[in-house]
């Protein structure tokens, strides 16, 4: 199969994703990622400015629980895309096996720490946020400035507190991060709703829980549509960063039961 180069238009054999004529990198599978599991959906997009998507997302639907992890590679660190990918892969595996959030973070830390350090003081680094969504509660764990929101039928809450001073991270996963102690909090909502996880590519444009709620509530019954709408908004406002959004129903029921 050949496709045409996004830059010079000549035929590209998509073996290593570069144009054989002009060398330009072609869109990769990671530039836009969609995961739709019905009760939960996640979208990760490169945005309009960055040369690659350094965010990563993983979703898993287990018996009676939905598990989600989002990570944002720190773009000033090296191999940031590999860091976020390694973090979510390691964490979702622990969560899917029934492991606690703290253990998932520890696994993510270990996975990022083994990446090579090619430059002094730029060890591969990333943020972390995960949600373990059960019928009556959501447990959120985070390190860095990726966020979790609770959008109920009436209430809207930011569940996380950024590890950041201004735009500078004060905590992250990476070999140069020192000991990582994740924040973990459990929230038991009084009404049904959705949990939203996102990287700063979304919340830089849409920071307040109330604004997020206004956009999300009309689509709450369809997590995939809600996630798509939020990503579209971020890109419409400039798409200056990679943007990743997870929308997951609580209780974690299928769309059919939502229709009731």
């Amino acid at each position: 199969m050949t496709v045409n180069c996004a830059g010079c238009g000549s035929a590209v054999t998509p073996s290593d994703n570069f144009c054989e004529t002009c060398g330009l990198g072609q869109p990769t599978g990671r530039d836009h990622v969609e995961i739709d599991l019905g009760a939960a959906a996640g979208i990760s997009d490169r945005g309009l400015v960055h040369h690659r998507n350094e965010d990563a997302v993983a979703l898993h639907v287990a018996e009676n629980a939905v598990l989600a992890v989002v990570s944002d590679g720190v773009s000033t660190s090296d191999l940031a895309d590999e860091a976020s990918r390694a973090a979510v892969d390691a964490a979702i595996e622990v969560l899917a096996a029934g492991g606690a959030t703290e253990k998932a973070v520890a696994a993510a830390v270990a996975a990022v720490a083994v990446l090579p350090i090619r430059y002094d003081d730029t060890a591969p680094s990333c943020t972390y946020v995960s949600a373990v969504i059960k019928p009556d509660e959501v447990t959120v764990g985070w390190v860095g400035d990726s966020r979790a929101y609770w959008i109920g039928a009436t209430e809207a809450l930011l569940l996380t507190v950024d590890d950041a001073r201004g735009h500078a991270l004060t905590a992250w996963l990476g070999a140069d991060a020192g000991e990582v102690v994740p924040h973990v909090t459990t929230y038991c909502p009084a009404e049904p709703g959705v949990v939203v996880l996102c990287s700063d590519g979304l919340w830089n444009y849409l920071g307040s829980a109330d604004d997020l709620a206004d956009l999300t509530r009309p689509l709450a019954a369809e997590p995939m549509s809600a996630a798509a709408e939020l990503v579209r908004l971020a890109i419409g406002m400039g798409g200056h960063d990679n943007v990743t959004v997870v929308v997951a129903s609580l209780p974690p029921t299928s769309k059919r039961s939502d229709r009731r």
């Binding site: 144009c19 002009c22 060398g23 330009l24």
Partner: peptide, 15 residues
Amino acid sequence: EVNPASVGDVMLAGR
């Protein structure tokens, strides 16, 4: 030495 692409682009400069 390559012809520069735009900010945000990645190029294979050599294999």
